[in-house]
């Protein structure tokens, strides 16, 4: 739906990757391509080494808990060609998520993978120093998982409804009925009651 200003369409990248390493691409949209999670290091190495894609820098590495599986998301970029490629790996095993580390390709994965391990509990095989980063060894559980502290069994996390929104038209993205008209001070509602010190 939303691509960054310099983000490549994923389909041509996926086609090239698929023909170089058959069977590696498992899904494609306009925005991102998904690769087999046990071969993600191969895919990254190929994108890094192939001059046409020149994925020289791992710009961002993060993960998403999709309840039944995890997604690990790699935002790659070429500084010379000034483009961005988004690669995802779907980790199907929600109980024991493991995939190869990107560290042999990108040194920049060192702390980012430690962070993902720490907060989401995904292990990266081949990482030289996979320890918790922000929390301490022995911390119970992985806080960014959706079922952390048992929340999520029969309950929904997140914010389903904003208290002040227009209940008559909750699905409208920009809700004209919500706009406060008439006299108002030059600031906005989010500024009242702020805890500035």
């Amino acid at each position: 739906m939303a691509r960054g200003p310099r983000q490549l369409l994923a389909q041509p990248v996926a086609d090239a990757l698929q023909s170089a390493l058959p069977g590696i691409v498992t899904a494609v949209t306009d925005e991102w391509l998904e690769v087999a999670s046990d071969r993600v290091d191969e895919a990254l190495r190929w994108l890094h080494d192939t001059p046409a894609w020149d994925a020289a820098q791992l710009s961002n590495l993060t993960s998403v808990d999709r309840h039944t599986h995890f997604e690990v998301v790699y935002h790659l970029q070429s500084l010379d060609l000034n483009h961005q490629i988004v690669v995802k790996a779907r980790v199907a095993d929600h109980e024991n998520p493991v995939l190869p580390s990107a560290y042999p390709v990108y040194k920049g994965a060192l702390l980012q993978e430690r962070e993902v391990y720490d907060l989401m509990g995904i292990r990266f095989q081949g990482h030289p120093d996979l320890r918790r980063l922000l929390l301490w060894e022995g911390y119970p559980g992985f806080p960014l998982r959706k079922d952390f502290l048992g929340i999520g069994h029969g309950q929904t996390t997140g914010l389903q409804r904003f208290p002040f929104e227009d209940k008559a038209a909750p699905d409208r993205m920009i809700n004209a009925g919500n706009i406060i008209t008439g006299e108002r001070h030059s600031g906005d509602a989010a500024h009242t009651g702020g805890g500035h010190h």
Binding site: H75, V86, F162, I179
Partner: peptide
Amino acid sequence: PHKNDVALALRPEPGEIYSR
């Protein structure tokens, strides 16, 4: 104007963005 009026609760379509 220094700001467009937008709803207090925006509901973006399901999707994702990486913006820097």
